[in-house]
Design a protein around this nucleic acid. Structure first.
Length: 439
DNA sequence: GCATGATCATGC
DNA sequence: GCATGATCATGC
């Protein structure tokens, strides 16, 4: 029998994504119009209408992904708008955990991983009182778990499985895990299931991605903008780095005020304003630089004194006290950060103390320094594991990196693996090291 | 509210 | 002058 002609290639994940993206900033009612014959109501209907009317496929076996040939699982999830922008309204729920079955699997053969390797995420803006059909889709894209995150998800899965194996399925809690949770599922707490290694009935639970991790995905999906808008801008033999260098040339020697006047930027008092200026010079207004994201480039600014002295060390993200314990070096935040290629943009104070754009340079950390950073990371991780938060490597230890506070103030705390609260700290590169680099 | 990209402030 | 701890404005 002839297959019906679909408006997309269901064997090709990119084609499915492209077709899905036609819904961006639209609602199903607007796109489907008169094709909607019946009325839909209740939970989970949005996904069903999408499948039936928009993607025009019949659901296949439950243990396989929705678009089986392409290995793509379709997931819709609500967003809410806060002062922080879009954040996830609730966790993203996957399949119910079959306690009798799941423990016989490995992560790679697990029900979760078989179905959810590649997700087509369709986030819509939730609004109270309106029909599912009228929700506006705000973020639509294919999501593949980065290796760093997958490691944590796999550990989470193992943690859930080990409780089942210990006959403690009834003691599973969402607090056990970091990204992948086992959330309760059922009308009430009388939704109980049997478990294999205990006679005690356990709450029915499903795999889910926690809200916090979803917010990370949403953040990753924030609008980015290309530096090079038209491929014609690439002249023969020119690289992205060449273009970047060229973009900065007209601004060398100019002061902060002169640059913001030239670029018509608002005056800012933020400590990060030189970073924003550098981004504006590259012609990017949105949050992320597409080429930098794709090529794993990091933009960092450096401020020099008039004498050429460098006062400040370079700060990075906060140390996630729980996550770091689950990281291995290869998938750690610090390794992933330091193995990026850096674009340093240096400003130097003139004789009046006014910062002027001095120059830029691309840089990659040498392997031997990366080894020092590895030792630092191991030391930090070991101390966190021992609950020692007061003897981290200091700048005076002169080992390329150090640990130092980073919070809104000294009362800004983060929960540790043991449930204690500790002052937020972050990863730093020593000023002396930066100074060596730019010399 | 909170992480980010940072710089400021203090004490020795 | 440097090490260390504290804090800022911003965007989302």
């Amino acid at each position: 029998m002839m297959e019906p002609t679909l408006p997309y290639n269901r064997k090709d994940s990119k084609s499915i994504e492209a077709y899905a993206q036609r819904l961006l900033n639209k609602s199903l009612r607007v796109v489907l119009g008169s094709q909607i014959k019946q009325t839909y109501s209740g939970k989970g209907k949005l996904g069903q209408i999408l499948e039936d009317l928009y993607f025009q496929y019949k659901p296949n076996s439950e243990s396989e992904a929705d678009f089986q040939e392409a290995g793509v699982e379709l997931k819709t999830s609500p967003l809410k708008k806060t002062t922080k922008g879009f954040t996830s309204k609730e966790r993203l729920v996957f399949n119910i955990i079959n306690y009798e079955e799941e423990h016989t699997k490995t992560f790679k053969t697990s029900s979760f991983w078989r179905k959810n390797k590649l997700l087509l995420l369709m986030f819509f803006l939730y609004q109270q009182g309106i029909e599912d059909l009228d929700y506006i889709f705000k973020i639509i894209h294919l999501w593949e778990f980065p290796p760093t995150d997958l490691k944590i998800i796999e550990d989470d899965w193992q943690k859930i499985i080990s409780k089942i194996k210990a006959g403690k399925a009834h003691e599973i809690s969402e607090g056990d895990t970091l990204y992948l949770g086992a959330c309760t599922k059922g009308a009430n707490n009388k939704s109980l299931r049997k478990q294999p290694f205990s006679t005690e009935m356990a709450m029915q639970r499903a795999f889910s991605l926690k809200s916090k991790y979803l917010n990370y995905i949403i953040g990753k999906s924030l609008p980015s903008e290309r530096i090079v808008k038209d491929t014609k801008e690439y002249k023969k033999g020119e690289s992205l780095e060449d273009i970047v260098k060229k973009r900065f040339i007209p601004y060398y020697g100019l002061s902060e005020d002169e640059i913001i006047a030239k670029l018509k930027l608002p005056k800012s008092k933020a400590k990060s304003r030189f970073y924003l200026i550098a981004k504006a010079i590259l012609g990017v207004k949105k949050e992320k630089i597409e080429e930098f994201e794709k090529a794993d480039l990091a933009l960092k600014t450096i401020r020099l004194e008039h004498s050429g002295a460098l006062k400040e060390s370079m700060s990075f993200a906060q140390i996630q006290y729980k996550e770091i314990l689950n990281e291995s070096w290869d998938d750690s935040y610090w390794f992933n950060t330091l193995t990026k290629r850096f674009l340093f943009v240096a400003f130097q104070k003139d004789e009046n103390g006014e910062p002027r754009l001095k120059n830029i340079m691309f840089w990659t950390m040498p392997v031997k320094d990366l080894e020092v950073a590895h030792a630092y990371w191991l030391d930090t991780k070991r101390k966190i594991a021992k609950n020692d938060f007061s003897h981290f490597i200091k700048i005076s230890d002169d080992r390329i990196c150090h640990v130092r506070p980073k919070g809104i103030n000294s009362k800004d705390l983060m929960e540790t693996a043991t449930g204690a609260m500790e002052k937020k700290m972050c990863y730093w590169l020593n000023s002396s090291y930066i100074k060596e680099i730019i010399k």
